[in-house]
């Protein structure tokens, strides 16, 4: 099916999702559950990736800065800028597109092929809204927290490397972290994160919701959801950078 068909159906799906919310209390309860499922349960992988990401950025920057006229604190500065501007919001979001996106597409796809979504529709429940809206809200709320944690842990990873290996002194590293800091970079990163969270949840839910067939198709929807949300994240990343930083 053509790209235009999918774009049209995606926006029609979004209209359904925000169309008619069911009982507010149930939605709140479901949103809290999704915060735990999509956010809190991703904390481990985010933490692990972030620490190593920060450590590697510090090592690589240090090994590539060998000119005597470049001050060593540039290592800390570069690590901070790379982590805040790009690595934490974009790379972690791409990882979450794989982990959370495939989970959402598989969950909703399985519900579709097992007729559970039909059951909701027949009861008179707006199935798209009931299943998807709490996920979107949860991800848009919790992902910025995950990314802020990722930023701290990445910078912490770099600091541990500076102590452990001596490629840069901890003092230089910390001086670099504080040098020429623009708080807007964090705002920019968080805006990106919220947009990426919307892309991850809606694209995955769209593919899951329109699954037809059986287990094989659920797997296919899951894979397609990850591929498309990753591509859209990269495009949105470029556009947001152009809009907000240039």
């Amino acid at each position: 099916m053509g790209l235009l068909f999918h774009i049209g159906r995606y926006f029609e799906f979004l209209r359904q999702v925000v169309g008619r919310p069911e009982r507010a209390k149930l939605y709140l309860q479901r949103t809290l559950e999704e915060v735990d499922l999509l956010g809190v349960r991703s904390l481990g992988i985010v933490a692990l990736l972030s620490v190593f990401m920060g450590a590697v950025i510090t090592l690589q920057t240090s090994s590539n800065i060998d000119a005597a006229w470049i001050p060593r604190y540039v290592v800390g500065f570069t690590a901070r800028q790379s982590v805040i501007l790009e690595f934490s919001p974009t790379i972690i979001s791409l990882i979450l597109a794989g982990k959370v996106g495939s989970n959402i597409a598989a969950e909703i796809g399985t519900m579709r092929v097992k007729e559970q979504i039909d059951a909701l529709d027949i009861m008179g429940v707006n199935s798209a809204s009931y299943l998807v809206l709490p996920k979107i809200v949860a991800a848009m709320v919790i992902n910025p927290f995950l990314i802020v944690i990722s930023m701290f842990l990445s910078i912490f990873g770099g600091w541990v490397v500076s102590i452990g290996t001596g490629v840069v002194s901890p003092t230089d590293y910390i001086t670099g972290l504080q040098w020429d800091f623009d708080p807007f970079t964090v705002t920019y990163a968080l805006i990106k994160t919220v947009v990426f969270a919307f892309i991850i949840t809606t694209v995955a839910a769209y593919h899951g919701y329109h699954t037809q067939g059986g287990a094989l198709e659920v797997g296919r929807s899951s894979t397609t959801a990850v591929v498309y949300s990753s591509i859209l994240i990269l495009i949105a990343n470029y556009l947001l950078t152009q809009l907000l930083l240039i």
Partner: peptide, 23 residues
Amino acid sequence: TLEEKRTIRQEIGMLFQSSALFD
């Protein structure tokens, strides 16, 4: 209307081939 359909649907019970219980 959508609202009237919702009311009718609340008067409908359906048993699916796969039971369609929420896992």
